[in-house]
């Protein structure tokens, strides 16, 4: 099995501050980590490799320091790592990101399975995985909690849907995004960490993946962020007094008047 795991480096804190001028995240002074959901994707890839043999290639797009996330991934069992990094990639929305990642994945063909986390904890869009699959014209299944069967050309997975679990058979090559129920990511080994430090990680530019600069990064992104803000939540509580019958009466008419009933 040749497995490709797509990861993202994100700020460790969930309470990141936003620069009101640029509407971007303030990353200074915040430690970067592998997006937690992606650690489950990586673990699943490594588990499959350990079970069936093969290789795990981990890939990310980001600034030069995203190399650290890839090193961490090697320490956790990935065999190879590739960094997409170039000024032209900067400012990408999910579309430009997945276009770049998909182009890079094509260079790694043939492969059996691409695994992504269900979403990143900073953007929370959950779009990149499915978009990569669309660009590659391969099937994808989201919110996978278990890989039940896996063989060349075919997989059976369980996906979480609201209030139920769906079992899906898919053809391979394909892409899955995983939820945290799928496994418990390991802690790296000391030898793994040492190996990761010595690893050479190639850096690919748009030219390396065969894309013109106009279709990647900010220029290739149709999304424009107007404003990022924390919504003001206004809640009003009201105590309705009286006997149970009176209270029920008032509540009923109130709910009817606002159209809930």
């Amino acid at each position: 099995m040749r497995i490709i795991v797509l990861i993202k480096q994100v700020p460790e804190s969930t309470e990141v501050r936003i620069n009101p001028e640029t509407n971007t995240l303030i990353r200074e002074g915040v430690k970067s980590i592998i997006n937690p959901f992606d650690t489950y994707a990586l673990e699943e890839g490594v588990l499959i490799k350990e079970r069936l043999g093969g290789t795990v290639v981990v890939m990310t797009m980001g600034p030069p320091q995203a190399r650290e996330a890839l090193q961490d991934a090697i320490a956790l069992g990935a065999d190879e790592a590739i960094l997409l990094s170039d000024r032209a990639f900067a400012g990408a929305d999910t579309l430009a990101t997945s276009r770049a990642l998909a182009a890079a994945v094509r260079k790694l063909e043939p492969y059996d399975l691409i695994i992504c986390g269900k979403q990143a904890i900073d953007g929370d869009t959950a779009q990149v995985g499915p978009e990569v699959a669309e660009f590659l014209d391969i099937p994808h299944v989201t919110y996978v909690r278990k890989v039940r069967e896996l063989e060349p050309g075919r997989a059976v997975v369980e996906r979480m849907v609201e209030g139920a679990v769906e079992t899906v058979e898919m053809s391979l090559p394909g892409l899955i995004t995983v939820v945290k129920d799928i496994n418990q990511p390991r802690i790296p080994s000391l030898k793994g960490i040492m190996k990761a430090r010595r690893a050479t990680i190639p850096v690919w530019t748009p030219a390396d993946v065969g894309l013109p600069e106009e279709v990647v990064g900010l220029r290739g992104s149709p999304t424009a962020v107007e404003k990022v803000f924390v919504p003001q939540v206004e809640r009003r509580g009201e105590v309705i007094e009286g006997s149970p019958e009176e209270v029920a009466e008032v509540l009923l008419s109130r709910l009817q008047s606002v159209g809930v009933l």
Partner: peptide, 17 residues
């Protein structure tokens, strides 16, 4: 074991760190 911490105080020629 899986993190290699068991081998911290063991010479490399016997598989330690």
């Amino acid at each position: 074991g899986e993190t290699d911490l068991m081998g911290v105080g063991i010479p490399e020629e016997y598989g330690g760190l």
